[in-house]
């Protein structure tokens, strides 16, 4: 029983990270119906930039710099990879371009930071806290709190500020938003910037628990896909639940079956959800317009 509890608790922390990545997909999908296939690399870059900074600035001062870096990185991805593809309405274009940018970022990171995994110093004590026999790392708690805080902050921004309303308006109907004076292409750039910010933030949250390195992004980006589809690409709440489901399932599979098969349930869940409820567990079915 204690083992089960332990597996669930550590699954929650990983699941929240998946949720944050999927949240990033939602942000750009809402405004532009596109998403960054190099989102995992955005996370990796944030994490590695943080790793370089943390020795100089300390963890807290490093955070705003990493977030700013994330914003910039996302904007670059949108400008180089997505903008022109949206104009020409080419689905293949943005998918291939964001994949290509992801490959380039990973290769550059390998050349800058090397190919080996790096240990990220933890800002919190590394001794686990014990609740009823279940060990919890302080950093795992920080992940859950940090992830939720960030998603709430973005939601509040979207609902309360005039800039956020421009984002919501673009998500609702891009053409109509454009007609009432919203600079929709700027909004799309901004949503990409926010999306990479979320990823970079997730990167510095998870790095102290796992390790960091140039190759950490690929698998995490994929998990984000699974969560986004399971929860629904259009549901903010869905990614948290989807992330938890996936994080916990993986941990259970890893323990009771074999660590080698840990990544398999993600795909199975994904196919299952698509077969039963294609818009995701919490997503709304879109209405086609003729």
């Amino acid at each position: 029983m204690e083992i089960l509890g332990q597996l669930i608790v550590s699954g929650i922390a990983v699941g929240m990270i998946y949720g944050v990545i999927a949240f990033g997909y939602q942000l750009t999908f809402a405004t532009s119906k596109t998403l960054n296939f190099g989102q995992g690399e955005a996370l990796m870059l944030g994490s590695l930039v943080g790793w370089s900074l943390v020795a100089v600035t300390g963890y807290l001062l490093m955070l705003p710099i990493v977030l700013a870096f994330g914003l910039l990185q996302g904007a670059i991805v949108e400008r180089l990879g997505v903008r022109q593809a949206i104009k020409t309405k080419s689905e293949a274009g943005w998918i291939m371009a964001t994949i290509a940018l992801g490959i380039i970022f990973r290769n550059l990171a390998e050349n800058i930071w090397g190919r080996d995994a790096l240990k990220f110093p933890s800002p919190l004590p590394e001794a686990p806290l014990s609740f009823a026999g279940i060990n919890v790392l302080p950093m795992e708690l920080a992940i859950v709190v940090g992830a939720i805080a960030m998603m709430v902050a973005v939601e509040v921004f979207n609902r309360r500020s005039i800039y956020g309303r421009a984002v919501v308006a673009t998500a609702g109907d891009r053409d109509a938003a454009g007609l009432v004076g919203v600079n929709t292409s700027l909004v799309i750039t901004f949503s990409y910037a926010l999306s990479s910010l979320a990823a970079a933030f997730a990167g510095v949250l998870i790095a102290p628990v796992t390790l960091t390195g140039a190759t950490m992004g690929g698998v995490l980006g994929l998990k984000g896909f699974a969560v986004a589809i399971i929860g629904g690409l259009s549901s903010g709440f869905g990614v948290v639940v989807g992330g938890l489901i996936l994080g916990i399932t993986e941990n259970l599979t890893g323990f009771y079956l074999s660590t080698g098969y840990k990544d398999v349930p993600g795909l199975l869940l994904l196919l299952l959800v698509l077969s039963l409820k294609p818009s995701g567990l919490f997503g709304k079915a879109a209405i086609k317009k003729v």
Partner: peptide
């Protein structure tokens, strides 16, 4: 990197 640039 070269491969990625070719794709772009």
């Amino acid at each position: 990197t070269i491969f990625g640039m070719m794709i772009l």
